[in-house]
């Protein structure tokens, strides 16, 4: 009777300890972060070479490279149809440290129509899933004056993103991918400070600061470098585009998507125009 107990104890203790240790180690390696939106980060799938036809681009380690000799560029403007909506000023008096950090009045940024009736913060990109070489230099988004600058930006899958905060107040960065591949994260920013992140799949990601609810930004993650964001003149220019016919996609955070077809010839500038309205 006693002997059996002893043996059982041995086995049981070993078994439970083993399970616990393997759970701990296994968990440590998986680096997965499931959120309410589901989806887990998968770093190995990150830079998986995409099957490309390589018509206008040379292969480089499974990733395409643009040959400048056969490339042209696309330029254009995003216009606004209708009366220019008045910018809505933000009242920062509830957040004294922001009020102190911000020198001039800041406005809501979900729809910015420039004085010349063009639309800022619209993302224009080519519709392709081919994977191109990732630039070594990181993309940068800064938090300054309790705003994200830039408000809309794009970067390549696998490219480093430097998330900066230049404000003396504490922000948190909460990014919420709309796609399934990248994973949501939420972290506090050292003030001032820099943190680095990398997104491995194409996505359209919302950035927000939960402490300052008006603070938001959108990041487009693309597999290729053919994108541009309109500025205060509503213009965009995508350089170094392989020759051929492309579908151009415009994406705006509150007005959705539009597409246009454009044919690029080597060494020439193709043009496109979009018009947005309410």
């Amino acid at each position: 009777m006693k002997r059996m107990h002893d043996k059982t104890l041995w086995m049981l203790a070993l078994g439970i300890a083993g399970v616990a240790i393997s759970a701990a180690c296994g968990g440590g390696e998986s680096r997965s972060r499931k959120s309410i939106r589901g989806g887990a980060e998968n770093p190995t799938a990150a830079n998986a070479p995409a099957a490309g036809d390589g018509a206008a681009a040379a292969q480089s380690g499974g990733l395409k490279k643009v040959d400048p000799a056969t490339a042209g560029s696309i330029t254009g403007v995003v216009k606004w149809d209708g009366a220019r909506p008045a910018p809505e000023a933000l009242d920062l008096s509830g957040n004294p440290d922001c009020a102190k950090a911000v020198k001039e009045t800041i406005y809501k940024e979900d729809l910015v129509v420039n004085a010349d009736n063009t639309v800022a913060n619209a993302l224009v990109s080519i519709d392709t899933n081919d994977r191109y070489e990732v630039p070594a230099e990181p993309a940068v988004v800064d938090q300054v004056g309790c705003r994200y600058i830039p408000h809309v930006f794009a970067l390549q899958a696998g490219q480093k993103l430097k998330i900066k905060s230049s404000d003396p107040t504490l922000h948190n960065v909460h990014y919420i991918p709309t796609g399934d591949e990248n994973t949501e994260d939420n972290f506090a920013m050292p003030a001032p400070g820099v943190r680095e992140r990398t997104f491995n799949s194409a996505d359209w990601i919302k950035f927000k600061c939960d402490v300052h609810p008006w603070m938001g930004a959108w990041a487009a993650v693309k597999t290729h470098p053919f994108f541009a964001v309109t500025g205060t003149d509503g213009k965009f220019t995508i350089a170094n585009v392989p020759a051929g016919t492309h579908t151009l996609v415009l994406k705006h955070e509150s007005l959705g998507e539009q597409t246009a077809t454009v044919t690029v010839e080597a060494g020439k500038v193709a043009t496109a125009e979009f018009t947005l309205k309410k």
């Binding site: 104890l9 049981l12 203790a13 439970i16 300890a17 616990a20 759970a23 701990a24 968990g27 440590g28």
Partner: peptide
């Protein structure tokens, strides 16, 4: 030994 498992699991929570 059950308690030891609890210790390991609680400590493991740092590293997942």
């Amino acid at each position: 030994w059950t308690w030891i498992c609890a210790v390991l699991i609680l400590f493991a929570s740092f590293f997942v």
